[in-house]
């Protein structure tokens, strides 16, 4: 029998109106304990009001090798950004 607990990734919402952000990881035997350990470890100083824990093995990540084909194509479409457009001075609320 293993005594090595699986790894969990912890996401913390620091206050209402903000999304959960990755805080780090920890070990726990199951989800319930992972939540509690996360509370103890990552919100000791009142850093959070909500926590998600996810087994690390359940995260599928994009591959760094495919970084270019994956993300480069979106870099050449400046018309998606508001700064692409010239607006005459004095025009407001745009």
């Amino acid at each position: 029998m293993t005594q090595n607990w699986p790894l969990w990734e912890v996401f913390v919402r620091s206050r209402r109106g903000l999304s959960h952000t990755h805080a780090g990881s920890l070990h726990a035997p199951d989800a319930e304990m992972a939540l509690r350990n996360a509370r103890d470890l990552y919100t000791r100083r009142g850093e959070g009001i909500s926590i998600w824990v996810v087994p690390s093995t359940e995260i599928t990540a994009s591959s760094p090798d495919e970084r270019d084909p994956f993300f480069a194509p979106s870099a050449d479409k400046p018309y998606r950004h508001p700064t692409f457009y010239d607006i005459p001075e004095g025009v407001s609320h745009l």
Partner: peptide, 12 residues
Amino acid sequence: REAAAAYADKQA
């Protein structure tokens, strides 16, 4: 640690 792991296995 073994006990907690065993419990988790049983629950799963």
